[in-house]
């Protein structure tokens, strides 16, 4: 398969992720959308790794995976905290501070 196919797939995933972040009201939904964007990054890195014939991109992917996982762990903990404080995981419910 040509490399463009992979890049198009990753671009589509990334845009889907951004769309999800902008439209989802559920905090967990937003987290999933951000995951999609992170996966787009990983596909990109592996595809480019093949193009350049080096393993740097694949090594980068491993780091990227680890980073995403640790970020999501913190994110889910914050969602639990949000639920305890607001009895809801909808992002609209957490809008006391304005101005």
């Amino acid at each position: 398969m040509p490399t463009q196919a992979y890049l198009l797939l990753s671009a589509a995933l990334f845009c889907l992720g951004i769309y999800g972040v902008l439209t989802r009201r559920n905090a967990i939904g937003v987290l999933v959308a951000i995951e999609l964007m992170a996966n787009a990054v990983n596909i990109n890195l592996v595809a480019f790794s093949r193009v350049w014939g080096s393993l740097t991109g694949q090594a980068f992917t491993l780091f990227s995976l680890a980073l995403t996982v640790s970020e999501v762990v913190v994110g889910l903990a914050i969602v639990i905290l949000l639920y305890r404080a607001h009895q809801s995981v909808l992002t609209d419910s957490a809008s006391e501070m304005k101005g």
Binding site: F14, G17, V21, A27, V30, L31, I34, M37, A38, A40, V41, N44, L45, F48, F60, S64, L67, E71, V74, G75, I78, V79, L81, L82, R84, A85, H86, T91, A94, S95, E96, M97
Partner: peptide, 26 residues
């Protein structure tokens, strides 16, 4: 309530910005 809200906003913006930066870096 405020701290949870502050953390949630900070986190969502931070995670989103990381994903965007990472895509650019890739």
């Amino acid at each position: 309530r405020k701290s949870a809200e502050a953390g949630m906003k900070f986190y969502l913006v931070g995670a989103l910005s990381s994903a965007i930066t990472l895509y650019g870096v890739s």
